[in-house]
């Protein structure tokens, strides 16, 4: 018994670290979100958020951007992952590496490159803000969608597909009833890895055409204005969205994440 006890104690430093630097900051943000400058309880911050057309508009716009970017990523990544995982290509892993490698290159450098190229094609990027935002997000997050999809599709057992064919299913039915349901875990983890960053990564827009019309940038602007209370309120709204998505996809229950499987 004594032996178990001593190893268990090794968890304490990490637990203390997580409480101090993960839990405590969030509790402080929660406190700030519900207080005003004098430290008194208030829901005014939230009332302001949900009544101001600017902030509520930003929320809706961010959701639209995130949905569109996630959709584009799925549409591009699914066939790509499928082809990579299911066909007998020679040098398959080398090809896969080519599709995944961009995620190791600093994203600001890649977005800067995208900006240069888009400027040549379009001229002023601010003329098509929504298109360019979605394009930028898709470009940046695509590898994060391809990898989890590839991992699940690769593990897919061929005998299921053969069984479906034996039972008379054609290609489309097999895909819809067998392949797609079995690849759901990969799809879900890909979606969470694209959707959330799309709502919060305001640097991509900022770099592309100096826009700040997305949820994350509200935090940035309140931060620059030293308005901790409103910034905290936005953080809480984002946390709530993140919590709902994570809970819905059971991200708290799983110990392994697809991001952890990158290497």
């Amino acid at each position: 018994m004594k032996l178990r006890f001593s190893r268990k104690q090794l968890g304490i430093p990490y637990a203390v670290f997580l409480v101090c630097f993960v839990a405590a900051p969030l509790l402080v943000v929660l406190y700030y979100a519900f207080t005003n400058g004098e430290g008194r309880f208030t829901v005014q911050n939230f009332a302001n958020f949900f009544t101001s057309p600017n902030t509520i508009g930003t929320l809706c716009y961010s959701l639209a951007v995130a949905v569109a970017a996630t959709f584009c990523c799925v549409v591009i990544a699914y066939p790509t992952a499928y082809i990579l995982a299911r066909s007998n290509l020679r040098r398959k892993t080398v090809l896969l590496v080519l599709f995944i490698a961009p995620m190791w290159i600093n994203f600001t450098l890649r977005v800067a490159a995208l900006k240069e190229v888009l400027t040549v094609l379009e001229g002023n990027l601010a003329y098509h803000p929504f298109l360019n935002t979605v394009l930028g997000m898709t470009y940046d997050f695509l590898p994060f969608m391809i990898l989890p999809l590839y991992t699940t599709l690769e593990k897919l057992d061929d005998s299921y597909l053969e069984a479906a064919a034996d039972l008379g299913a054609d290609g489309v039915v097999t895909f819809l009833k067998v392949t797609l349901p079995l690849s759901m875990p990969g799809l879900i983890s890909g979606v969470t890895m694209v959707f959330l960053p799309s709502m919060t990564n305001y640097v991509i827009l900022d770099m592309l055409y100096n826009s700040t019309y997305i949820m994350g940038s509200l935090i940035g602007s309140y931060f620059n204005a030293y308005d901790w209370h409103s910034g905290s309120m936005i953080s809480i709204v984002l946390l709530a969205i993140i919590f709902v998505i994570t809970w819905a996809t059971n991200g708290f229950g799983e110990e392994e994440t697809s991001r952890g499987a990158i290497l």
């Binding site: 630097f21 910034g231 953080s235 946390l239 993140i242 708290f252 991001r259 952890g260």
Partner: peptide
């Protein structure tokens, strides 16, 4: 799991506060 799923903006901001 919190920092893993959390947005980096929120992690950074809350730590800063």
């Amino acid at each position: 799991q919190i920092p893993v799923v959390n947005a980096e903006v929120v992690t950074g901001f809350s730590l800063c506060v």
